[in-house]
Amino acid sequence: MESSSVVGALLANKWTALVLGTLSRRPHRFGELRRAVGGISQKMLPQNLRALERDGLVTRTVFPTTPPTVEYALTERGSSASTLLMAVSEWSVANFDGILESRKGYDSRVMEPVG
């Protein structure tokens, strides 16, 4: 598999974007991260966190408390990925109306009868 497809698939995952965006503000414990990332299931959050940790975007720190406290934070790589995702998000918001207008114009031209 090509390296750009692997990284592209990782960053295109909606949960990745939401988790990185949430952690960009500050480290979170598992429960507060789950509450902050609305809609993610009890199964999907740990899967995504493991994948992000495996790829070096997130660190997992276990504190010796009873019960153990686990905190997730961005690595330097995770922080740079979060910055890129925020830029894409800002571009999307800034260009949303224009894209809708372009689609309307295109669709009206395609729907016109030929001849």
Rank of each mutant, 00 (worst) to 15 (best):
T59E: 11
R60K: 15
T61R: 12
V62Q: 12
V62M: 09
F63V: 15
P64D: 12
P64V: 01
P64A: 09
T65F: 09
T65H: 09
T65K: 09
T66F: 14
T66R: 15
T66G: 11
T66C: 10
T66E: 12
P68E: 11
P68C: 07
T69Q: 11
T69M: 09
T69D: 13
V70R: 00
V70A: 07
V70E: 02
E71V: 15
E71A: 09
Y72S: 07
Y72C: 01
Y72F: 14
A73L: 01
A73V: 08
L74Q: 02
L74W: 00
T75I: 05
T75W: 01
E76R: 07
E76C: 02
E76A: 14
R77P: 10
R77V: 14
R77W: 14
R77Q: 15
G78S: 06
G78K: 00
S80F: 10
S82C: 04
S82R: 02
T83Y: 04
L84C: 08
L85A: 08
L85F: 04
L85E: 05
L85S: 06
M86E: 12
M86K: 15
A87P: 04
V88W: 05
S89P: 00
S89V: 00
E90T: 01
E90W: 01
W91N: 14
S92R: 11
S92Q: 08
V93G: 13
V93H: 14
V93W: 07
V93K: 09
A94S: 12
A94F: 05
N95Q: 11
N95H: 12
N95M: 06
F96N: 07
F96M: 08
D97N: 13
D97W: 05
G98L: 03
L100K: 13
L100W: 12
L100F: 07
L100D: 00
E101S: 13
S102V: 00
S102M: 12
R103V: 01
R103H: 03
K104C: 02
K104T: 03
K104G: 01
G105K: 08
D107P: 00
D107N: 07
S108V: 09
S108D: 15
S108P: 03
R109T: 15
R109F: 08
M111T: 14
M111H: 05
